[in-house]
Every structure is written in structure tokens, then in C-alpha cells.
Simulated scan of single mutants.
Amino acid sequence: MTQASPDAVTTRLPIGSDADLGWVRQQVRQAAAELGFGLVQQTKLVTAVSELARNTLVHGGGGQVEMTRLHHGAVTGLRLAFTDTGPGIRDIEQAMTDGYTTGGGLGMGLSGARRLVQEFAVDSSPGQGTTVTVVAWATGLPQNGRDAL
């Protein structure tokens, strides 16, 4: 996963209610626009954010997202880390399978979000919560971007 520079600005947004989901989407879209993401890129990122924030609320009992603006030379991006202290994911591989659901939905949340960003990582332990970290780039990838996946 791409690391932020030491001077990167991180914003923490709570995810504790349905109202927070809209606020998080709005803040991510605004940051993406400011960083030069095109409209299609913004839409993909906000779609992934919507899925991950809802998972944080519904399955994790709430938590937060840390949004970090990334700058690697002329390349800009956003790193988003969704963290909860919920029950965790017992089988990450199964949870990443298209069609798998524990909530009666379409089962496209984690796997769908993974397809909408350039970098994706899940860290979860049963009983200790989950952190899903994604990175999306506005223009290309930094030299080490793909190596960091």
C-alpha cells in the first residue's frame, strides 16, 4: 500500500449514522475534485466509499474513515482507511468473492469496491474489528504505486 509523505494531511471522519454516510461521500468527492480527479474517477471512488462506509456502519457497528491526500511529484491521490471495532471478518477470501453476502444484499460490496480503486487491502481479526484501506490516483500511478499493491 502506498504510504503518505510525512507532511500529508489526514482528516478523520466519523461513521456512526446514515447521515454520516452522506457526509463522508461529500467530503471524499470534494477532496477528489480538488486533487484533479475527473468526474468518472470521482464517481468510481465515491461508489467504493459508499460501499465501504456502509459496511463500517452496518457490519462493524460504526467507526471512522481516515482520508489522506497523497502527492508523489505531479501525481495526486487519496488514501482512505475505514476502521471499525466490530466482530471482524472470519474469512476475508470468502468475503471478497463476488456474490458473497451476510446482509442479504447483492454481495458486491468489498469485491466491487476493490475493482473501483487502484490499491486495496483488508486487515481483520475476528473479535477485533476491520480496517479496509484503499488508494485511488487522479492521474496515473507513482513510480512505486503498483509495486506497493
Rank of each mutant, 00 (worst) to 15 (best):
R29F: 09
R29H: 14
R29D: 13
Q30H: 13
A32Q: 05
A33N: 13
E34P: 02
L35D: 09
F37P: 10
F37G: 00
G38Q: 12
L39A: 13
L39T: 15
V40C: 09
Q42V: 03
T43M: 11
T43L: 14
K44T: 12
L45H: 06
L45T: 10
V46L: 00
T47F: 08
A48S: 05
V49C: 01
V49M: 06
V49S: 03
S50L: 06
L52S: 03
A53M: 05
A53W: 00
A53C: 01
R54C: 10
N55A: 09
L57F: 05
L57G: 04
H59V: 01
H59A: 00
G60A: 04
G60Q: 00
G60S: 00
G61Y: 06
G62C: 00
G62W: 03
G63K: 00
V65G: 02
V65Q: 01
E66F: 04
M67K: 11
T68L: 01
T68S: 08
T68M: 04
R69C: 08
R69H: 11
L70V: 04
L70Y: 07
G73T: 08
G73A: 04
A74E: 14
A74K: 15
V75Y: 12
T76P: 05
G77D: 13
L78D: 13
L80G: 10
L80Q: 09
A81V: 02
F82Q: 03
F82I: 03
T83Q: 10
D84F: 10
P87Y: 11
G88R: 04
I89L: 02
R90Q: 12
I92T: 09
Q94H: 12
Q94K: 14
Q94A: 14
M96C: 04
D98M: 15
G99Q: 05
Y100Q: 15
Y100W: 15
Y100G: 01
T101K: 08
T101V: 12
T102I: 14
T102N: 09
T102E: 13
G104T: 10
G105V: 06
L106Q: 07
L106T: 09
G107F: 01
G109H: 05
L110N: 06
S111H: 09
G112C: 01
A113W: 02
R114S: 10
R114K: 13
R114G: 01
L116F: 07
E119A: 12
A121D: 14
A121S: 12
V122Q: 00
V122T: 02
D123W: 03
D123P: 11
S124W: 10
S124K: 08
P126H: 04
G127H: 03
G127V: 01
Q128C: 07
T130C: 06
T133W: 03
T133K: 05
T133H: 02
V134C: 12
G140N: 13
L141S: 10
L141V: 13
Q143S: 14
Q143D: 13
R146I: 12
R146K: 14
R146T: 14
R146C: 15
D147E: 15
